[in-house]
Amino acid sequence: MENNYLAINWNQIEDAIDKATWEKLTEQFWLDTRIPLSNDLADWRTLTLDEQDVVAKVFGGLTLLDTLQSQDGVAVLKPAIRTQQEEAVLNNIQFMESVHAKSYSSIFSTLNTPKEIAEIFEWTNNNEILQYKAQRINEIYQTGTPLQKKVASVFLESFLFYSGFYTPLYWLGHNKLPNVAEIIKLILRDESVHGTYIGYKFQLGFQELPAEEQEMMKGWIYETLYDLYENEEKYSHLLYDKLGWTDDVLVFLRYNANKALMNLGLDPLFPDTAADVNPVVMNGISTSTSNHDFFSQVGNGYLLGNVEAMEDSDYDFDFK
């Protein structure tokens, strides 16, 4: 009967990438409660007030974006799924975006006072530059085509988060806030898979478009990316000018914007490469994981109890 409800059958896979992604995401499952953030308090107290302010605000911004992803960003992709397994993968992604958003609150509750936390969320929910990128992406989620929605998701996962990720990676490269950075590295690893997977699904649909529509879509993608990058420039100046980090942050952003385009199967827009990124930040990404959990001896990078070292290549999930 046409109206029968269909049970999902993981023994009959239509797209091997769905199964590979499910296995990748489930093997790297984690929770913020496994990371002893209080061990970073001594480092936190050595930061200047300006440095603390930047940390707080970037995590406020990241909380906003992960909230958008968990509440709207995945749900809008589901009507255009190609397989039942794809929906299962998206369910996993949606849950982990909620874990990411919660993780920042765990950081706040460790490092900040209740008054400071209230101020962080007040700033996050009302800053025009930060709100612009959230609203710009959400506008596409609510009114765009299925392919445009995938592009917006990849831009968020692979590009827009990185103006915030720069800060904890910078401090990790200077041997500070390692437990905070552990959470960020776990989030980075998730986002790498999310962006690559959704980019792959975009490419399947893009390849089915007539040549003329492909060119129109490319034009829209590059125009949207540049608009978002211009806003990220403003956001980076707002956050980082007082620390003198802005130029380095913008290089990092352009590098990751190119990676977002590559996830979509498109050519890079900017000349920046990994070699141009501040080596301290790249070192922060590639530093091996640590064991900080006193009870289970599990630190970041655990694969269901199995600790492994993470290198920069771990963030470039390759379906091939």
Rank of each mutant, 00 (worst) to 15 (best):
R254W: 02
Q207N: 15
S38A: 11
G195D: 06
I117R: 10
D241A: 03
N125K: 06
K185P: 00
I13A: 09
I35C: 09
Y200W: 12
Y255V: 09
A260M: 10
N300I: 02
L6H: 13
L172W: 06
R254C: 05
V99F: 07
D247K: 14
Q71M: 11
R254D: 07
F155R: 03
W22H: 13
I129Y: 09
W171A: 02
S236V: 12
D72H: 11
N291I: 15
V151N: 03
G73Q: 04
T46P: 01
S109T: 10
Q142E: 15
E116A: 10
D72M: 06
R189W: 05
Q71W: 04
G73V: 04
E308Q: 13
N278T: 00
T196G: 02
D248G: 02
A118I: 11
T113W: 03
L47H: 05
T124C: 03
L250G: 04
K133F: 06
I107N: 00
Y132M: 12
K201T: 09
Q207E: 14
K218E: 13
I8V: 15
E233M: 13
P79R: 05
N283E: 15
Q297H: 15
K24N: 10
I183H: 02
K242N: 11
D40Y: 01
Y166D: 04
M310I: 13
D40R: 07
L264T: 08
S192I: 01
M262C: 03
Q297N: 14
Y235F: 15
M96V: 15
I129M: 08
A7E: 13
